[in-house]
């Protein structure tokens, strides 16, 4: 089995994997980082979004082997020094989650939106940018509020 090495949440990891292993399988099964979820098999739901070299990607649609040497951040790596990321705080404060299953991907996407679009986001922009993340519980209302609030908080 070929070997892959990458940095996940700041730690160097490497493993021999079946070539078929997707990044999300590598994270969930090899590293037991189960915060990254799988909600579909057609790259649409966004439950599996993580950051690779600072950009949001769907970890169900990339081979682990492709990411040799990459720097991966998952939901487990977002809080720093025991302090929640402002976007995590904003999701809790605005009741932007119910069952919590889409939440890790939703938060990782939201941080990426702010990284790309800045800290002042209008409703239309947020709704459009969330195109690749499905939530079945919230009707998105509070997620939209949380992303706007989290974006502002990230400026501080």
């Amino acid at each position: 089995m070929p070997k892959v090495s990458m940095t996940v949440n700041g730690k160097a990891v490497s493993a021999n994997v079946d070539a078929r292993t997707l990044l999300v399988q590598f994270l969930r099964e090899d590293l037991r980082l189960t915060g990254t979820h799988v909600g579909c098999d057609t790259s649409q739901c966004g439950c599996c979004v993580v950051h690779v070299d600072g950009k949001a990607i769907k970890s169900c649609t990339v081979l682990a082997l492709t990411l040799e040497g990459a720097n991966v951040t998952t939901i487990e790596g977002l809080a720093q020094d025991g302090k929640l990321h402002p976007m995590q705080e904003a999701f809790r404060e605005n009741h932007a989650l119910q069952c919590g299953f889409c939440t890790p991907g939703m938060i990782m996407t939201s941080v990426d939106i702010v990284n790309r679009k800045g800290n002042t986001l209008d409703e239309q922009t947020i709704r459009h940018e969330l195109e690749g993340n499905l939530c079945r519980c919230t009707g998105y209302h509070n997620i939209v509020k949380a992303v706007a609030a989290g974006a502002e908080a990230m400026a501080k």
Binding site: R28, T34, H37, I75, R92
Partner: peptide, 18 residues
Amino acid sequence: RRKEDLRFITGRGQYTDD
């Protein structure tokens, strides 16, 4: 604010597949 949220926003929920 919800008590259960801490584990969900940090990726520490325990779903069946986990």
